[in-house]
Design a protein around this nucleic acid. Structure first.
Lengths: 142, 142
DNA sequence: ATAGGTCCTCTAGTCACTAGAGAAGCAAGA
DNA sequence: TCTTGCTTCTCTAGTGACTAGAGGACCTAT
């Protein structure tokens, strides 16, 4: 089984060294074993976990939400209803994000296309694109 | 034309009062006119702008990215190529986020469905769902 | 054995808020 | 008009999630 020092894990996961230590400190990463000389040793699972955390953070999930998601992974023995509740509530959030991002995507596409075809700047309506779906009157995109 | 005090704007936009003042301070919001008694006065445009900022932040865009998006809206006279560059680079980012969120959505759906149908906890593979598309071998989900 | 790199802990700084203190403004009733 | 209570004002300090730096230990290669 391959083990990696923190620098390698950092490089391969895209998470900076101090951030990895920080994640350990706040309990997002398990405390890894150490060498004789007190250096942290990681394995492939840690690598994947870190990459997951990085992407989830980039998508705007806070540490609490990420902990909840990882707990699904970490505790397959937990009650079905509990896991289900976590998965479902995250699912609602994820779907809302997707629909907002799609609206923004369409607006940016429209602007880029307009520019390409006419050589002029399109009126920009990005502000409308992220309107709160729960407050909207029109239909929601699919 | 209706004007609103900061408290109303806060309530209707979902952005807290100190946060609104903070956005003014860092230049995300224009400095509003004041009453005789030195209180800020906002209008409907400010309201929309604030709601946009809130949603964009929730989606994980940082202030710099939001400024760039708002600049498209604010400066229709700017060069086409500049606006286009901003729109296109945001577009790439937005599409990547969408595809990752969709992968996560599918995994959460799978888990919720599994629980519903079998009454047992599904093996959770959320970690795999956000893998870096640029490092993946399989095809990307549209 | 020593030079250069990686790692250690600890403290402090950054970004984007968020909460609190203390004072001034304003609206409504006694 | 005065006062009670709410909103707003500015300013300072605290939070969450990093991020950078100091000072020192470890480790590899020559």
């Amino acid at each position: 089984m391959t083990t990696l020092p923190i620098g390698q894990v950092s490089e391969q996961s895209g998470v900076k060294v101090p951030t990895i230590r920080y994640y350990e400190q706040i309990g997002l990463l398990p405390t890894p074993p150490r060498t004789e000389g007190n250096r942290r040793l990681y394995d492939g699972d840690d690598l994947k976990r870190l990459a997951f955390i990085r992407h989830a953070r980039e998508l705007g999930f806070d540490v609490g939400a990420i902990k909840a998601l990882l707990s699904l992974q970490d505790h397959p023995e937990q009650s079905c209803s509990e896991a289900d509740a976590i998965a479902r509530s995250r699912l609602v959030e994820v779907r809302e994000r997707i629909s907002r991002l799609r609206a923004l995507e369409r607006e940016l596409e429209r602007m880029a296309d307009h520019c390409e075809h006419t050589g002029t700047v399109a009126a920009c309506h990005v502000i409308e694109t992220l309107a709160d779906p729960t407050h909207r009157h029109g239909r929601l995109d699919d």
